[in-house]
Amino acid sequence: MHGPINEVIQFIDLSAYSIMFLVLVGFVGGLVSGFIGSGGAFVLTPAMMSLGVPGTVAVASNMCHKFPKALVGAVKRYKYGQVDIKLGIIMGLFAEIGVQIGVMLQKHILDTWGPAASNLYVSFIFVCVLVIVGSIVMRDALTAKKAGGATSEPLLARRIQKIQLWPMISFKTANLRISMWFLVPVALATGMLAATIAVGGFIGVPGLMYIIGATSIVASATELVIAFVMGLGGTLLWAYYGMVDIRLVLLILGGSLFGVQLGAIGTTYVKEYMIKYVMGTIMLIVAVSRFFAIPKYLNNLNLTSVDPDSVVIMTRISFSVMCFALLIGATIILVSLFRARSLEKAVA
């Protein structure tokens, strides 16, 4: 099957601008991923497409850069004692199943209602998940900030952990014991979201925090293991069809591995609620960006008749807002990191 696809794929020529752009976006994306466990990938696919990379190659190359980045981030954060490998691998394997379900669901929508409906579905999920989950995360972060950084285990997680349903699994680093039946839905949802919007962590990390009961530090670090398992599976699949442009992957990795190290270092300095704060901020700003993309899809479905020029402008605004979200996240991380470092030095 890979032969025919390979023949029609056009790999782009790289200019100095596109090289710089990819390294820079990779760095910022890596910084955010190292800190909150995921979140850099959603900008990279449209960023590559804006350079003229075909959609499938952009998705495949994004996937291929994600798992080594997650690996490096996970190793770094494991050294800080933040990663629960067992939790990450179990969740990652079920998330892989979730990815397949997500792909099938999207294929079904595509076959039944066409590409515009598929895009509308993606945007709808984007907005729903980001607004709802982002608001919860942000509210929790602001509450913790007001309380001076003190956080308590969420009520839902405490109740779920009390339910003794076979098979019960203990996680040493996360310091929790929970039935596998509660891990599976979170992992499946993570995989399905990853297949839909390319960032499973927007469900995975809050799920680990509020349903499973891990701390935000452990949740964001363990998400890197989940991303590695999912990314490796996805990459093998895309590479089987010859879709990975290794040049793009290496350029993005060139920046993102610097970023992911710095993001991981940042988690050792900041208070726990900062991870939620950065995540909530990015999710809510990205949700705004998707509002600007919806008119285009409604036009394609002949549900609205917005002026095409306005649609083009709105699509550009949508991408710019996404980049803005990532930059804001990266700025908060860097400022928090260097402020905390100087405070630590001053106290000493």
Partner: peptide, 13 residues
């Protein structure tokens, strides 16, 4: 080589 697909998928990985 890296976009040949099939078992060559292991190369990019």
């Amino acid at each position: 080589y890296l976009t040949k697909g099939g078992f060559y998928a292991l190369l990019p990985v």
